[in-house]
Amino acid sequence: MPARLSRRKVTEYIADQLIAGTRHDDVIRQLAAYLIDTRRTNELELIVRDIEYALSERGVVLAHVTSAFDLTETTKAAVRDMIANHTNAETIYQKQLVDPDVIGGIRIDIPSRSFDSTIAHRLNTLMNYKK
């Protein structure tokens, strides 16, 4: 029986394939078959996160940007610059999410890192400060 491959190795292989320009459909089909064969479909969410991380290490960053209101183009560009500065990314994909629960400010989630300057987060931290 072959040794179980770690998630990191699997996702690095997938990221390499994507960067090399292999067709997305083929890569996804390969991964799906592997997960079913090794009964690891429950790790799907984590594998997606790890692929995002592996891609970010290769210069492709997918950023989820959360704010209470729609962002202006100027702000979006500023966010893009900030991510580029912090990650040395060559390609940045931004996903904009509007969530009124954050009250104000902005949250940027990139693989394994987060920038949270939302009012909700600050209030939460303040609440825990003296606990």
Binding site: I108, I110, S112, R113, S114, D116, T125
Partner: peptide
């Protein structure tokens, strides 16, 4: 005084932080 310290602490920590998630 406590509130000021807490706010100063908050200002200092805002940045790109490493995060994980409980599996």
């Amino acid at each position: 005084k406590d509130l000021r310290a807490a706010i100063a602490n908050l200002e200092a920590t805002v940045g790109l932080e490493s995060v994980g998630v409980v599996v």
